[in-house]
Amino acid sequence: MRPVIPYVTAALLFGLGVYGVLRRRNAVLVLMAVELMLNAVNLILVTADTTARAVLPHSGQVFALFVIVLAAAEIGVGLAIVLQLYRLRATVAVDEVALTEPAVSTRTVGQDVEAGR
């Protein structure tokens, strides 16, 4: 087995995930790109489990399981935030989200939200 093949696959997938997170406007698509990055890391962990002889056997696979659980928690909270954003602003475009608090901000986006309540 040549470990360079899955390693290169994982590197390319990670690059694709970074590209997707920066490129996409829709928050759900951003979460999908985050999943791509997490899976690239998982593939690196599982491949490293075959190439590195650790003191504890199968540590990489155990870590991959942990990362899968973390990703499940992340996607749950992330989707709750996205749905709440959609309920408040009726959009999930990440570049239309005001970064400051609407009550403090004097920008028009914040005033819109305050008036809508």
């Binding site: 040549r2 390693y7 590197a11 690059g15 694709l16 970074v18 590209y19």
Partner: peptide
């Protein structure tokens, strides 16, 4: 940024593991 991250990691890993087998 994405291409840089992907290609950088690729170069790093190819340089580390070459065409060897385990």
């Amino acid at each position: 940024i994405g291409g840089g991250a992907g290609l950088g990691l690729t170069v790093l890993l190819v340089d580390a593991y070459r065409w060897g087998t385990v």
